[in-house]
Amino acid sequence: MPIKRLVLVCSLPTLITGCAEFYGSQRPAPVYGRQPDIHVSTAPKPKPPKTIKQAKRPAAPIVETQPLKDFGPITTAPLETMPPIESVPSTTVPSYPEPAAPPAVHTETIQPLEPVALLSPSPAVGALVSAADQNSQSGNLDSAVAVIERAIRIEPRNAVLFYKLAELRLKQSKPRLAEDLAKKSALLASKDTRLKRQSWLLIANARVMQQDFDGARKARAKAASF
């Protein structure tokens, strides 16, 4: 009996070791409702990257400072006082005579003209003159001029038509053209002294508009001679 016990005790460690190896080689039984085991990787861990050593910066040079020199207390000199300004005696401004007023310029006025009746045997010319008078009264001077020019093409030697056209040009502020038309009217009037007088008065008014006052007086003197 002691020998059997001794053999059993000696073989017990070997038996335990073999059972342990057999237990580790078997897969564990599955357990439901349990989270899967996390297998730890046995791969070698990566080595940390080597840190780049920074180059050492050169040390900053040491600047030596020296204390400021003592210049002593600062002294201020008083400002010089300016002498008082002497008052300048007032001087009298010489009086000059006022300039003489320019002489008054005698201006001529435009005198109103009497209406001149048309004496023409042509009914077409009479109708054109009536239409021109209506356009002139309504302020449409351009249409009135065009109508009178049509009448002149029908009767080119009618002095009254030229006089009426001269009146329209004077209303259009065209005194030079009105003066030429009035001269032609006076020339074509022959023995009609009234038309000649009216034509020269119109010439005088046209010269007043042109600031030719001497010529206006001469034209009025010419009109008074008829």
Rank of each mutant, 00 (worst) to 15 (best):
D142Q: 11
N140Y: 05
T51G: 14
P61W: 07
N158W: 01
Q54A: 15
L168H: 00
P103T: 10
P115K: 11
I52L: 15
Q35T: 12
E21T: 12
P58Q: 09
Q198W: 02
A100M: 09
A117Y: 13
Y23L: 10
T17F: 15
T193Q: 13
A117E: 11
S122T: 06
S90F: 15
S87R: 14
R169C: 00
P156L: 04
A144F: 04
L118Q: 03
E80C: 11
V129H: 02
S95T: 15
Q111L: 13
S120F: 03
S190E: 10
P175E: 00
A216Q: 01
P89H: 11
E167L: 06
A144Y: 02
T17P: 03
S225C: 05
P112I: 02
A60V: 11
V93C: 08
A186N: 01
P67I: 07
S95W: 10
F162V: 03
L201F: 05
Y96A: 15
S120W: 00
L181W: 00
V9T: 13
P121R: 09
P89W: 08
L128S: 03
N158D: 05
T107D: 07
A104C: 07
D214E: 08
I152Y: 00
I74W: 08
K56D: 05
R220P: 01
L113C: 04
D192R: 03
K196W: 02
K45P: 08
A104R: 09
F213R: 00
Q198L: 05
G33V: 03
Q198R: 03
Q210A: 01
I74R: 07
P67F: 13
S173R: 11
I16F: 11
S143R: 12
D142W: 06
D214T: 05
L141M: 06
L170M: 09
A55L: 13
Y23W: 09
M82D: 10
P102S: 08
V7G: 11
P44E: 09
R207V: 00
K174S: 08
P73E: 07
E149M: 10
A182N: 00
H106P: 03
R194S: 14
Q172E: 05
R220I: 03
Q134C: 08
V129I: 08
A20G: 10
G126D: 08
R34W: 12
Y32G: 09
D214R: 01
P99E: 06
Y163A: 00
S190T: 12
L119P: 04
L8W: 14
A221G: 12
A100C: 07
A182G: 03
T17E: 07
L161P: 00
L12M: 14
R169N: 06
A144M: 04
R150W: 01
E179F: 05
A60Q: 09
